[in-house]
Design a protein around this nucleic acid. Structure first.
Lengths: 222, 222
DNA sequence: TGTACATCAGTGAACGCGCGTTCACTGATGTAC
DNA sequence: TGTACATCAGTGAACGCGCGTTCACTGATGTAC
């Protein structure tokens, strides 16, 4: 399987950061490009958006774009990185929160699921774009985000695992992990790509949250 | 959100079948085109494959291709339909199988999950292509397969529901359905797009099957 | 059973469009002395 | 505090490549009488 995307000259696995802007002016341009793209991703896919369009929306120009980014794809890399950092930061904050000290596993799982739902909804456009890209190619670099989410989320998992004594499943570590895989898969499908689901049987986010929580706890044998 | 795919002239929601071949010769050509495409999809995405390449692999020509299909996309429509029919057929056979007469819900769920895993693995390439396409656009037509799978699978669900007395969940219908959504999401992610998952923690298909079964039954409260 | 004509099937070079990328140029900001 | 020069930033028309699609043509199969 080969990539459909332009190969980066600097070789493999090095998501290229934008050439660092050295003046305030161009830093602002970069910011405008980023936010314009996120806005455009809100209801189109990355492939459907042209560089010219991004430039125009950002009140900038195609040339300026290429002054920062090696190619179109490098922009998505950059968004990926920025976004992953935000996620890691939020997860860290979250897992350090002291309210978990005395909490039961039920409460913890409930909150983690709500947190994830919030995150998916907040970054829907970008997450869609990154997910699709990861799946359009197998340049391993592009599976980064999903992998990163799947790997960072372990911090949340560790939180759950610290309640290990409440878990009856014979291999709690594996079950906690696999259960998370199931939760993340389900949320990705339902929240990022809802078109695939019949609308006749609408399932609200909060029902989904409740049922995922229920399923997860039942699986762990709490 | 607009489609990135060519719009069909004949209007909306009408997946165009190929112009029916009237001679044996062209029927064979059509068959070669179909099988060449499925072969190519085995390790590339639909967008990465050119019409010229399909024609060449099928020992045919670009012109012949367009004699059958209105455009490139119509081919994927066609594969979608053919494939969905196969699935429906197999599910029907499956659910009529008499061995379910006396079976317990545990056994039934176990077999259904294995059936689904087999199906996903057997048609991996095509299913990937169809899933990605459904997600690259929101022409509702393109979400057909996923929706069709999500809708045909209810036959399997009905099978499970016929064991309703063994289910403790307060709303068994909803739980059976939602649990299936979780199973399908997880299988799609892990089997169709395995790149996203770290290889350090390998999970075999049969472990996955066991754990999904376990999780599902626990969720239903069997 | 043969001939004439119509339709079907096949071919691949040429076309054309969309879009990513380049490039020659103008203007703004920073730096050296 | 001013002048000269270097670098950074911005612009958008023009380029070019890839690939889906068309089209003029050849050959094969079917049909009418």
């Amino acid at each position: 399987m080969r990539s459909g995307f332009a190969k980066r000259s600097q070789g493999v696995n090095t998501p290229s950061a934008p050439k660092p802007p050295s003046q305030q002016r161009s830093r602002e341009t970069l910011a405008r490009i980023v936010s314009a793209t996120e806005r455009l991703l809100h209801d189109r896919n990355f492939e459907e958006i042209t560089v010219a369009e991004i430039a125009k929306t950002a009140h900038s120009s195609v040339g300026s774009f290429y002054a920062r980014f090696e190619d179109k794809d490098a922009l998505l890399d950059y968004l990926d990185i920025v976004h992953a950092e935000k996620l890691i930061e939020r997860i860290t904050e979250y897992s350090e929160d002291e309210r978990w000290q005395g909490a039961h596993i039920e409460e913890l799982v409930r909150e983690v699921i709500r947190f994830l739902i919030g995150f998916f909804k907040e970054h829907k456009g970008l997450l869609r774009a990154l997910t699709v890209r990861a799946r359009l190619t197998d340049e391993p670099r592009f599976a980064e985000v999903t992998r990163r989410v799947n790997n960072r989320v372990p911090e949340l998992i560790r939180l759950v695992l610290s309640r290990r004594s409440e878990i009856a499943h014979p291999s709690p570590d594996q079950a906690v992990y696999l259960g998370f895989v199931m939760i993340l898969s389900t949320l990705r499908e339902r929240l990022l790509f809802p078109e695939a689901y019949p609308t006749q049987l609408p399932i609200s986010d909060s029902l989904l949250a409740d049922e995922l929580q229920h399923a997860y706890l039942a699986y762990l044998g709490v």
